[in-house]
Write a protein that binds this DNA or RNA. Structure first.
Lengths: 220, 220, 220, 220
DNA sequence: TTATAAACGAGACGGTACGTCCAGTCTTAAC
DNA sequence: GTTAAGACTGGACGTACCGTCTCGTTTATAA
């Protein structure tokens, strides 16, 4: 062995990863982790969130229950991470760059395009069950809700902020507008209709939202 | 029993209220019904929706479990009716007329007023737990979600529709605007911030929403 | 209904059976009780006591686990009652009178007869597993051990006491002998060889024990 | 790898010590072995045998679980060896010669003396928990039971055999008596009362046993 | 005097069973 | 015929250990 004179008695752990007492994540089984993600997403898709159980996930994943409890604190936690992992995988599969908001110079067209794509995604049954499950849990569970927002929702919304700022630079949007609030004019109605089923989702609907939000509803 | 010679084996039910097989609602105990509503709301407020159980509601209400299962199909169902009952009681207590959207002639002012009141209500801890519980359940449970929307949400939104139509009549809002969509521009952002905790709620925020929605964010 | 004018509002429970808080044994399911006894005895016979589980008993008996926990406090408790029930059934099947110690006038012959029968019973594989299980549990668990002794062992030993007293009356056994101790001279060695497997059991062995115990081992 | 031309694949082991596959006991850690014995006995004494776990012993001994599984096949096995070790230590501490049955020439006195000492030992709380645990396990587990008998019980009983033979030589006990059976007349009752708690243990009781066993209970 | 292979402390893993809680059904007695 | 009460089957909970299986790290021969 090439002797390392500097730290002969140090424990084998990279500096800065000191651990207090929890489980040793360096020995974690990646195989189990992914089997659990897959099982959780599949179970939610098949029988819904309420009828998805930790025991069911464990047995479907071929894993002991304790392996789930060791690394996650709740069913919602598992599903959140499974969903994050799914998103990462999807964006990696889509080639390096995660995703970029289109900027053709025509704000209305760009917004309509993105919102139409969002409608399509929301109606995709593959994503619907876990998304609803997480969103619902977040409504009732503040801790998870915050994670949901910071890790999933807000990053998406920031893309709108970027596009709106660019529109402000080019003079298409008034400079005194707060983009973080403005984006809610078209995003929130879509979210509400999806979450609460308070109305139908369609490309025409989102186009209308963009028009109303850009030019206002007041008589000029 | 006073013998009724014509229908000796018929259940005791006034004519015209025939039902196929379910329980006989004319014999229902109003005392139990209200005890169950109270117990359900109190339990949700104290321990949250997930930890509220049918057994807990029954024992807190001094009622047999079967009395709950006889009249409701699920925990969510009980809570929905309890909430509707609460709303009715509240509006009756507020004197006959349920509630009317203010119409001072100044649309912006009226909207800001109502939205400020809505913010205050959403932040009232007394209503928060059951509202969130129902909303969350509705996200995941389509049947309940539709009831939630038709019985609670949509009637509220129709008040906005009425006010917007009045504004169209007076020329403050363009005639080609669909009021049912337009109202979402200020209501949905508020709903989303509350449901998903994606941002703070304040009077300033709702005022801003009204301004943006009325006049648009595009440069003129 | 025959009206009982004296105690119109009393709960339906025979006097003297007042209950503090435990489950209401008057509504207990006899079907479940016996299914549990059968399942417990069968399981112990098949896989042994250690590998017999509450879950196994419950599922074999077609019973919820809670029904076991409601009425018994442990696996050992279930087995003890199952065994007592078995004994009762056996003695009832043997026709009213439970069992009587033979008294032909010849003490040695009577003791040898009974001990030979006991040897045969101890070697009967049907009784062996649950008996050993209970005996072992009683060694380690004082509460159960005392129940085992008072309900199963001591009643048997008292039959010996009776026979020895009869022998004292007829002058075959010295009057100053304590029968409760004397009986241990032939019963305990048999018990020890069975429990601890410290030696073989046979009719010859028990005959020898009776001879030694009756006449002593000292030179005369 | 430094090539070893003579026996490239052979395990490094001196000739004559070939073993098929088990662990190499010559490299065994005595420190761990004794820590495990201590931990096992302490745990049994503190929480009882049933609640003593392999994991508990390992952590109390500061030892990996595998170190226990490598050298013992079960909890009972560990405890048996721990108990044997304890006995050895005790007898070594009592000075070279393990122990000898007294032989004053007066058989009755010698037996009474030894049985009184045995009573005192059985009532010593320090030995009680592990002794009961082993005895109970032996009742139910034939393999362990036999080890318990051959390694612990039978050697003790052989001391009685020796003393009885000496009494036969001196004419105090009849020559046709089988000492291995005779000893059970006083030892087994004591064992049964202790194991099954079927009666109190006292010096008077064992004295009586000796008298009954030596001279019989029959009228002369 | 290394070097190397086994034992070692540690603990993650797939499992089984625990004892508890609650769902939803069923039975009983009171009214 | 509804009600309060609560026993019933069933099933998931979260925990505790089982016995196996890696991980690095001692440690004790044997080269």
């Amino acid at each position: 062995m090439s002797s390392d004179s500097s730290t002969p008695t140090a424990p084998t752990r990279p500096p800065g990863t000191a651990r207090k007492d929890g489980p040793d994540s360096s020995r974690r089984s990646e195989r189990s982790r992914h089997a659990i993600y897959d099982a959780a997403l599949a179970s939610v898709a098949e029988v819904g969130y309420q009828r998805t159980t930790i025991e069911g996930i464990a047995s479907r994943a071929g894993v002991g229950k304790q392996t789930i409890y060791r690394w996650w604190s709740s069913k919602a936690d598992v599903l959140l991470e499974a969903f994050l992992d799914l998103s990462e995988q999807a964006s990696e599969a889509a080639g390096g760059t995660p995703w970029e908001f289109p900027d053709t110079g025509d704000l209305a067209a760009d917004l309509k395009f993105v919102l139409r794509a969002t409608v399509d995604e929301l109606l995709d049954p593959k994503f619907e069950a876990p998304s609803r499950a997480l969103a619902a849990e977040g409504v009732v569970n503040a801790r998870l809700g915050e994670q949901f927002v910071t890790k999933l929702l807000e990053p998406q919304l920031q893309l709108y902020v970027g596009r709106l700022r660019s529109a402000q630079d080019s003079g298409q949007v008034r400079a005194d507008i707060d983009p973080r609030i403005a984006l809610e004019l078209f995003v929130a109605p879509l979210a509400q209709r999806w979450l609460q089923r308070s109305g139908p989702l369609s490309h025409g609907y989102t186009d209308t939202l963009v028009d109303y939000a850009l030019h206002g509803i007041a008589a000029r």
